[in-house]
Design a binder for these strands. Structure first.
Lengths: 229, 229
DNA sequence: CCAAAAGTGTTCGGAATACACCCATGA
DNA sequence: TCATGGGTGTATTCCGAACACTTTTGG
């Protein structure tokens, strides 16, 4: 590239955004917040920021997640690039979006609140700035497919969880109701979860807490397992 | 953004690349060519080019495809962004990659030859410049998944095709052998293909030519059909 | 004693898989 | 006449889907 060409071509900006899905045992949620500066001050939008030319984007997204939630690790994957010409009034900014999965617990709730984060319900996403609604839609589609074929639902649950919680999670992300008996049959057949000694006090009857068999999970993901809900 | 910030942030380049899969009735292939200028002159790489800040990328990719193959339409989808910091010595260039599916006929072979394109076998991709091997790997994974669930194989076949060709295509892209009888059963059950009056002279026995039921395809894609090989 | 969630088996139909031989024809 | 690819049917197994009652316990 000549200097002239560089002047023409090296004029893009790069932003990274994150669709953070969280599950609290009851509902599937997405983290958004309100923009603090112009343009679009006050508008809702996804967590994200501009990237510098010497920065890798993956660590930025991890850092974003840590900053907003306090979580160290999570399932995380790039969605795709959103490269429309007029998506951002500041210039031609390419957005590369990721999605991540976390379990929402008390600690995280406090953290996100401190950071002015807002957990909105999976199917009640408000109007967002830029093309962020489009990004969320794309992320939801991806999540639905992934949940069907890989046991990534486990990333959204605490270490110990009940079958009821697991089923609710699947129902929310697939957006349909599942039969309790068939659900149990399928989950147990996969042998991905192990019952523990512990129980969770329910409003009436207690329920058994399960944990996730990580070894088995590793093996299954390696050979491209199909979970198939 | 202040001017100062723009100087820091708006320094990225954007390139679009395309993994073009083609099927000639026998083998599944990928189009590559050789770089004509420095850096990496002579190296193999994917079709692609730099994007200007006022250009949308989708049309550029379509234009690329048309330029290299002469084809007007094809199945086409963004893969994802490849945003590594040091992938390109010219600067921080973000690559957004697409893949597309075409049928290779005589006419296209002439066109690609004229454009110095090289059709290499699906499982014999040579070393490519930049991170293009990584892009091709990603595209192959995507193609495998898509072929399993959507009848996109039809984009890779001529208007009239034999069951044998269709089966070969599936075998190549899934990289496994399929049982002839079971394959036919499944394909016919889907009712996506219609027999025609025509036959194709085989080396021995002639074989019936089929065409693709486009109306049925439309309906099935609308309601999120699962083909499932 | 009742409301609410936990837990538990069976039946049926459809699909996937495995498997072997005849046919037509050009060489 | 034989080598090559086209074409065809059945039996078994497995999985998904539909479906209803009992158990526990706090209020």
């Amino acid at each position: 590239m000549t200097q002239e060409e560089k002047d023409i071509y090296l004029k893009f900006g790069l932003a990274g955004s994150m669709v953070l899905f969280g599950f609290d045992g009851e509902d599937l949620k997405v983290l958004i917040h309100q923009k603090k500066d112009e343009p679009f001050k006050g508008a809702y939008l996804l967590p994200g920021r501009y990237i510098k030319t010497d920065e890798a984007i993956d660590p930025v997204i991890k850092e974003l997640m840590h900053h907003h939630t306090g979580a160290e690790y999570a399932y995380m994957e790039q969605l795709k690039a959103f490269p429309k010409v007029f998506r951002n009034p500041e210039g031609r900014i390419i957005n590369i979006s990721y999605y991540a999965l976390v379990k929402i617990d008390e600690e995280m709730l406090q953290k996100t609140e401190k950071r002015k984060g807002i957990w909105v319900n999976y199917d009640e996403i408000p109007d967002l700035a830029y093309d962020h609604n489009e990004i969320v839609e794309y992320a939801k589609e991806r999540l639905k497919r992934r949940v069907k074929r890989r046991p990534i639902g486990f990333f959204l649950l605490p270490k110990l969880f009940t079958i009821g919680e697991l089923q609710k999670l699947y129902e929310k992300s697939l957006n349909k109701e599942l039969d309790k008996r068939n659900f149990r049959k399928k989950i147990f057949k996969s042998e991905l979860i192990i019952p523990t000694e512990h129980t969770k006090p329910g409003p009436r009857k207690d329920s058994v807490l399960y944990k996730f068999d990580e070894d088995k999970y590793e093996k299954l993901t390696l050979k491209g397992y199909d979970f198939l809900f």
